[in-house]
Amino acid sequence: MNDSSPRPIGFGRVAAMFPVKDMERAHAFYAGVLGFTKTFENGQPVGFMILKKDGAEIHLTLQKDHKAAPFNIAHMMVADVDALHELCRSHGLRIVKGLRDKDYGLRAFVFEDPDGNRIDVGQPI
């Protein structure tokens, strides 16, 4: 008997790729401000970097001509959205959408990283 039904496909991690103009500045922000740890880098000068914190993983790619997209490129779930919002404000980051409770069950806001990448951040209410 020939079973033509597709086999289930398992998926592993999916990591967001953030284009950056200045790798040192991006690393300083994600590691120094947000507390991520660099786990891998490649190139001389470094053109690619992986950073992790808790269950989150982001990839930075050096793109000297990067122009930020006018939409969110990633969504982050965090344990304390109010604390992250205050951290972003205290470091002078642009808040694109203010912190508020959403009707879909998240307390959320959107900020731009130092390269203008928009990141949507949420915490379940």
Rank of each mutant, 00 (worst) to 15 (best):
L87K: 14
A68V: 02
G35F: 06
V33C: 07
R100Q: 12
A56W: 00
G116N: 03
A69T: 10
L60E: 07
K21C: 04
F48C: 07
I125Q: 09
I73Q: 09
G43L: 04
V110L: 11
V14I: 04
L84P: 06
A108I: 07
H91N: 15
R100C: 05
F18E: 07
A108Y: 09
F109W: 00
F11M: 08
F40P: 00
A31V: 11
I73N: 15
A83K: 15
T37V: 02
F48M: 07
N2M: 10
D65L: 13
G92T: 14
D103F: 08
N42Q: 14
K67A: 08
D65N: 09
L60V: 10
E112K: 02
G47T: 14
Q63G: 03
L51Y: 04
G55Y: 01
S5E: 06
A26K: 11
F71L: 03
V110K: 14
G92R: 09
K53V: 08
T61H: 15
V121H: 03
A69I: 07
T61K: 15
N2Y: 06
Y30F: 04
L62I: 10
M77D: 08
E41L: 01
L62Y: 13
T61Y: 08
N42F: 14
D82E: 07
V121K: 09
P70N: 09
A16Y: 01
S5A: 05
K102H: 09
L84W: 08
V96Q: 11
L87I: 07
I58L: 15
K53W: 03
P70R: 11
M23E: 03
R13Y: 10
V46C: 06
D120Q: 13
P8T: 00
L106S: 01
V121G: 12
A15V: 02
M49T: 08
F111K: 15
G10D: 00
S5W: 15
F40R: 03
V46H: 03
N2R: 03
M1P: 01
I73F: 10
D101W: 06
G116A: 01
E41G: 08
R25L: 10
L106I: 00
N72M: 11
L60Y: 04
L106M: 14
G98Y: 09
P124Q: 05
K67Y: 10
I95G: 03
R118F: 00
H91D: 14
F71C: 05
A79I: 08
Y30T: 13
F29H: 10
N72T: 06
K64C: 11
L34Q: 14
A83W: 03
D113K: 04
H85E: 08
K52D: 00
M23F: 04
P8H: 11
H91Y: 02
R118G: 12
Y30R: 15
L87H: 12
G12L: 14
P8Y: 05
R94T: 06
G35Y: 02
V46Y: 00
I73D: 15
P70V: 01
D54E: 15
I73C: 13
M77N: 12
A15D: 13
H75W: 02
R7C: 08
R25M: 10
M23N: 09
A83Y: 15
Y30L: 04
D120E: 11
V110C: 13
D120Y: 00
G43E: 09
G122Q: 07
D22F: 09
P19F: 04
G105V: 07
K52P: 01
T37I: 12
G35T: 05
P124W: 02
R118Y: 08
D115L: 06
